[in-house]
């Protein structure tokens, strides 16, 4: 505990906390996109879209060893703590850094700092807003943006990402691009903060961060885009059981 207190009390340690919590949140995003892609894999023969089946599975992971909903709520608690710590340390660091230069320059020129790095607080702020919006939209179903039936993920997606609510899709797509910028800097940056980057690996770590980010964001964007442009099977078809073959 003394060591954790020592880490938290220093700015460099706070950066380490931001890096580790960022890595946890990255792990969540990677898992999230992998699960989401099940929307494209169709339905079971008895008329259950794979994405609904997957959503149900998330609630039943580990049953009967652990109770129903146990794993998903444990993950939610870990993620919530990670988000809170990530935001808390970053705000403290930003406030302290703002104090480090009370009088700014008349002229400023950046030679190296990328826009993604310079606007991490802006992208992070939008992501924080998006998390709340997204949970209210597709987890709680409290927003009047399309139909909401708990457990019927495919139906909800089809409705919210329809052309009637084109602005919902647009907002999701824009937010995904912003998350991509945040990830592109953050993924590399966490290696540097943890002291794991060096000139031998720098290129591969940066390339790996960019490729990972692009793949993840492309996966996320594909979903609203596919629904919006009418590429996805209609709801009735997705929930229709295939008649058993006659013998």
């Amino acid at each position: 505990m003394n060591r954790l207190a020592a880490i938290y009390s220093s700015n460099l340690g706070k950066k380490v906390i931001a890096a580790v919590t960022g890595l946890i949140l990255f792990g969540f995003i990677a898992g999230h996109v992998a699960g989401n892609l099940k929307v494209f894999t169709g339905s079971t023969p008895d008329g259950l879209p794979h994405i609904d089946e997957y959503a149900h599975f998330l609630r039943e992971v580990g049953v009967p060893l652990v109770p129903h909903n146990m794993v998903i709520w444990s993950a939610r608690i870990v993620l919530l703590l990670a988000v809170i710590m990530h935001i808390a340390v970053v705000i403290q660091l930003a406030m302290q850094s703002a104090e480090a230069r009370p009088i700014g320059y008349v002229k400023t020129k950046r030679k190296m700092a990328s826009p993604a790095a310079l606007y991490m607080m802006f992208s992070g702020g939008l992501i924080a807003f998006f998390i709340v919006f997204h949970l209210l939209h597709f987890t709680v179903g409290a927003l009047p943006l399309g139909e909401f039936q708990e457990g019927e993920v495919y139906r909800n997606l089809h409705s919210s990402f329809s052309a009637d609510y084109w602005y919902v899709s647009l907002f999701y797509i824009i937010t995904m691009v912003v998350i991509g910028l945040h990830l592109n800097h953050g993924l590399w940056s966490l290696f540097q903060t943890l002291g794991l980057d060096n000139p031998d690996r720098n290129k591969i770590i940066r390339l790996g961060s960019t490729v990972t980010t692009v793949l993840i964001i492309a996966g996320f964007i594909a979903i609203p885009l596919a629904f919006l442009t009418g590429q996805m099977p209609p709801v009735e078809e997705a929930y229709q059981a295939i008649a058993p073959p006659n013998h």
Binding site: K15, M112, W188, N198
Partner: peptide
Amino acid sequence: SCRNYAECEAQCPKGISIAFIGRLN
């Protein structure tokens, strides 16, 4: 605190690498 902009390396008159920052971390 360092935000890994690498702006220091770019403007350092001796071109010192941020690799040393990773090492210090």
